[in-house]
Design a protein around this nucleic acid. Structure first.
Lengths: 339, 339
DNA sequence: CTGTTAGCGCGTTCAC
DNA sequence: GTGAACGCGCTAACAG
């Protein structure tokens, strides 16, 4: 391994000078810079990150914490996409990304501990938000920089997070259904202790109420991830005395499941029932019918969270921020107009 | 930050003793161990990873390199799953995972350089395999430990990689179609410079030939990822004088696209045409019809690659390995028996 | 503008 | 069984 000393020796300067040209210190003469740079290239010098980290007490690395695999959501294309969003800014800023690898809540907690205590990373992005989460509490206690993608459960004004306005998005997409003449509209969401679900559902209800349409409990179903359980729920829903003509589903992937169940029961989308959902994942475009869905700009969600985090790590006094990423409804073929 | 010295002072021993109990050195008396450990806990000591890395010249970290986003495949649920597989062993071994964040081939190349030269990681997992890849060549030149998930393009016997036997898998799944009475079988695959595609396709052809069925070029279509271009291709396929009654698709996600196009053209699966594919991603289970597909055990692919890599990093003389992960066909509802 | 010195936190001789 | 001393590669004063 070629070190700063080697370069120094080869150039006939001192190690600190070499260090300075690496930092592009303005007080170094252009000549020596040139010389040193040449030597670095010739010798194949590359700065040793551990050594630097040790002294500057910073790692230029951020940790990204995925939800525990209890949240089966991992199969959701949401994650690769948000990772890419994060990557787009970390790469630009020459930061690196350390991914959590724990599967259970406990494992993740330990991992985050190592990350912060061991000085693995300068800050952390939480890709989930759970009530009473040990990790979150830990981070707060330690005053360690972190941002949440989504809405924090507690201390909303004290935790910088980046999110969509899921309430309004839910309202708007429901209104679209209403505009198309639908009155009987159902909601199918994931676990109701996820804020996304709660917010989107609240928006759905608001739209209904504003329009003066009934919001009935039998129209709202929550199901982990669509398998056996979800199937019954959907069947029940459609065999109500007055089945819905429109459904708001909280997530594209879930929509795929709902779609299958619906078709299986002989109801066609959008002929018999209209469907809208959220995320605008690639999938929603290639499925039949293509989904009308709200594009929440996952990539941007990731990018902004990384940006906010990095700002926080370089400037600890950076104020808490609530960043809202605009969404946009993309209209496709899963909705039909009612007479 | 509480260091080894602090613990030493608090315990009345020397720093080196503390270091030894951390390493669980057997020549330390149980008593002092106990004492020191208590102090560590009390003071909240955590070993500083940078400092340790600096001296031991190892990072206990591995880099995971995703394909450039030119390979639009990133939306594929394959990636989160393989990441989880990798995570399952890195976590157990207390390794950490650094994710590449570059988007273009060039960016990724630079990134890998930093990773290896800067001693960010001990080894690297390549989640793709491209012909004449700079990254691969670089890694080889430097003699840096790495493993490929998939089949290397060159030097197959010189690069440890973990893969499925895609040829046989392709053959077997095609044979399943044949067993069900199909003779006219088409193949739809992704880019034909991906080895997965090549191998699976070869298997498909082999099955056909062995069964004495025609393998026609007009039955083989390659399309990046199914959008406009793919649509036409599928339409052409189905409007051949003798359209296929069965289709082998190289990937579940792609199957979803094919399925849509088929239905759009009024052909029903599996009534009019049978469909099989690969990967057994969660999606293939919730779609209608549920896909008959070969489960390639993505999670295991990830886990084994991490395991192999770690072994390589701890023991540089570890021999090159070709690890083949068994696959298994899971039979669902996308195939019908021909009379 | 540049060199010298010191020290980041840890592991590892080599003594005792 | 334990301590003292040194060095990993780098940056940051402090000189000059």
């Amino acid at each position: 391994m070629v070190t700063i000393k080697d370069v120094a020796k080869a150039t006939g300067v001192s190690p600190s000078t070499v260090s300075r040209v690496i930092a592009d210190n303005p007080r170094i003469s252009p000549d020596t810079k040139k010389k040193v740079r040449k030597a670095m290239k010739d010798l194949g010098y590359h700065t040793n990150i551990s050594a630097r980290n040790l002294v500057v007490k910073s790692t230029k690395a951020i940790g990204v914490i995925m939800p525990s695999s209890a949240d089966k959501a991992l199969q959701n294309p949401f994650f690769p996409e948000i990772l890419r969003g994060i990557g787009s800014v970390t790469h630009r800023m020459k930061y690196s990304v350390t991914l959590s690898s724990g599967q259970t809540e406990e494992e993740i907690y330990e991992e985050v501990q190592r990350m912060v205590f061991g000085s693995y990373v300068d800050g952390v992005i939480l890709l989930y938000s759970r009530l009473n989460d040990r990790v979150t509490n830990f981070l707060i206690e330690r005053g360690f920089p972190f941002v949440i993608v989504g809405k924090p459960y507690e201390n909303v004004n004290g935790i910088t997070h980046v999110d969509n306005d899921n309430f309004t998005a839910g309202k708007e997409i429901t209104e679209h259904l209403i505009d198309q003449g639908h009155e009987k509209i159902a909601f199918i969401g994931g676990s109701k202790d996820l804020f996304v679900t709660i917010d989107r559902e609240a928006g759905y209800e608001a739209a209904l109420q504003e329009a003066g349409h009934e919001v009935s409990d039998s129209y709202k179903i929550h199901t982990e991830f669509l398998k056996s359980g979800g199937r019954e729920a959907v069947e029940n829903l459609m065999s109500l005395k007055t089945p819905p003509t429109g459904i708001v589903v909280s997530d594209d992937l879930m929509s795929v499941g709902v779609l299958s169940m619906l078709e299986e029961s002989g109801v066609k989308v959008p002929r018999d029932v209209s469907l809208v959902s959220f995320n605008n994942v690639y999938l929603s475009e290639i499925i039949l019918p293509a989904l009308t869905t709200v594009d929440i700009q996952i990539h941007e969600l990731g990018a902004q969270s990384a940006k906010a985090l990095i700002e926080k790590t370089v400037n600890k006094t950076e104020p808490v921020k609530r960043i809202s990423i605009p969404y946009e409804i993309v209209y496709r073929d899963s909705v039909s107009r009612l007479p």
